[in-house]
Write a protein that binds this DNA or RNA. Structure first.
Lengths: 237, 237
DNA sequence: GTAAAAACTTGATCTAGATCAAGAGTTTGA
DNA sequence: TCAAACTCTTGATCTAGATCAAGTTTTTAC
């Protein structure tokens, strides 16, 4: 299992009648950037991903769906831009339509500890700050350029009360988040560093190639050096 | 902060008019057992604690409250008795009225890893097994003699649908559980063994004297030996 | 296009906490 | 009531992963 090289060859060729293949060119291409480009081209309206998510997760009438959309606030983040900074009170429920975001704390020595990653089709934010209306201990910033749909918490609660299907969806997400957190605790208690990494790659395929290793190491509770060595070892096998 | 001795002296004496004190006797007494005895004497009906909890957490009509009680299944566990065993599917929502329970996994070497403790006024069970209707990876057993109120999940969901206040309470618990799990992850990533212990004692005063050290060590992700040494060190200060 | 800043790798050394072992105290159950 | 089974403590030793340091590659920004 070799490290995915960022730049990879792309071959251009044409198949001509008679079975011969005419070779044009090879260029080196950054697959990840290309994929992002495609996704952007396809999404003429980037909230449509949220629309699609709602359709999958819930059964809404047209009116309900429009009601939800009417409360949606669209937000774009450039890479490294903050969504939430430590000390601020978080006031939203946030759904990611495109991109990737990390939630982390900074300790007194300046070390960053990644608490979670969130990508398209996931929710992000600080529930504790939101619920208790207290300053957040977390920072949230964008790992890639990111697009979100925000709801103020008042609107969000209103939607929960008005639309049972929406409420069910929220409940469901919360349960899954809790289960995921439980599993993470379990992993951190029982697994070795190597097992933690393999478990992560296995559970979230795609994350590993998209998120800087330093951050993954932090998420898994180890140093970047250790992760680098583990990757080297596992690549051999 | 010295280790709490299980058997402690209790002095019997009387104050006589004129300021003299008449001394009777000293006996050694197990405060913990005595406390439990008192609690049991006071609770002529042990579901009343659940009743009290509901009254505190929610605003229910008399009818709603009776409806909830009508679905309640009372269960008693002796110390060490299982509530759930690995491989079984968990089908309830469970509220503890008295006692203490632990949730843990067993690894292939036979080592036990405590995932959580739950005491009076808390909920317990395996959400993952319940939600996905799949065999549980967890064991739950009683650390002390324990009394619970169970609801089958169907009844529980019925109550959630019927009684908005009940639904809100459940939502609230879930949010708090999720926040607690997040904080635990945070602690396990950032704190040293000693800090983890102090954080635990600080956050859950009362747990430390009630739960065997081996289990606390496991919960905190360290060996009993390490915890023993930490306790010795912090006692000095 | 290029210099500065990040991100990643590799090696040498160190340390918090694990493991192993053995004794003392406590609880359990026939 | 007493032996067996836990639970806790303490010491000696070991090790996974941290820390420190220096080189290489990749990304960023002017």
């Amino acid at each position: 299992m070799n490290r995915k090289k960022r730049w990879q060859p792309l071959f251009f060729y044409a198949s001509i009648s008679g079975g011969r293949t005419l070779f044009f060119d090879i260029i080196l291409i950054d697959w990840h950037a290309l994929k992002n480009l495609f996704i952007r081209c396809l999404l003429h309206n980037f909230t449509s991903l949220f629309q699609k998510y709602l359709e999958e997760k819930t059964e809404l009438t047209q009116a309900e769906s429009e009601r939800i959309q009417s409360f949606a606030i669209i937000k774009k983040l450039r890479k490294r831009q903050y969504l939430l900074q430590e000390g601020d009170v978080w006031k939203y429920d946030a759904f990611i339509t495109q991109g990737c975001v990390r939630t982390y704390t900074v300790d007194e020595k300046g070390g960053e500890h990644v608490n979670s990653f969130s990508i398209e089709n996931w929710w992000t934010g600080d529930r504790e700050s939101l619920m208790m209306q207290q300053p957040s201990r977390f920072n949230i910033d964008a790992i890639e350029d990111t697009e979100l749909v925000l709801f103020t918490h008042e609107n969000f609660e209103l939607l929960c009360r008005e639309i049972p299907a929406f409420n069910n969806m929220v409940n469901n997400i919360l349960q899954r988040s809790f289960i995921a957190a439980q599993n993470r605790i379990q992993a951190s208690l029982t697994l070795t560093a190597e097992e933690k990494y393999l478990n992560f790659v296995n559970k979230y395929p795609g994350f590993a190639s998209r998120i800087p290793q330093t951050m993954i190491a932090s998420y898994l509770g180890m140093t970047p050096e250790t992760l680098s060595r583990i990757r080297k070892q596992t690549a051999k096998k």
